[in-house]
């Protein structure tokens, strides 16, 4: 779907946390996962800025690992603070989506 960028902005960080929470992974793989999911407009640069923020806020553990070609790759995994943040994200998301569903169904 096109033109999701604005709407996706606030939730993309949560999506990245969820992906990292599944398994330790790196920027390009995260981007590809999001693209495959249907968020085709998400570029690696955006994911890079999110990862940088997660690192600065102490939510991830970063490990440099050698890659077959090119420089070593930075791999990201959630730490305890990251897992708490992810739980908070899903709680907020469920609150938000349940309210919006209600609105759509015409309830109060």
């Amino acid at each position: 779907m096109e033109d999701l960028t604005e709407m996706l902005k606030g939730t993309l960080e949560g999506c990245v946390l969820q992906i990292i929470g599944g398994e330790e992974t790196y920027g390009y793989a995260i981007t590809r996962r999001l693209n495959e999911l249907g968020f085709t407009d998400v570029i690696e640069g955006t994911v890079y800025t999110i990862l940088l923020r997660l690192e600065r806020n102490g939510l991830v553990r970063v490990t440099k690992r050698p890659s077959e070609k090119g420089p070593p790759r930075k791999f990201y995994a959630l730490n305890d603070a990251g897992r708490e943040e992810l739980a908070r994200f899903w709680a907020k998301w469920e609150y938000l989506s349940s309210r919006i569903d209600k609105l759509k169904e015409g309830g109060r």
């Binding site: 390009y28 890079y48 940088l52 070609k69 090119g70 420089p71």
Partner: peptide, 12 residues
Amino acid sequence: GIVDFFEEGAAA
């Protein structure tokens, strides 16, 4: 950090 990021992309 930007150079790290660019080196990875260029290598790919």
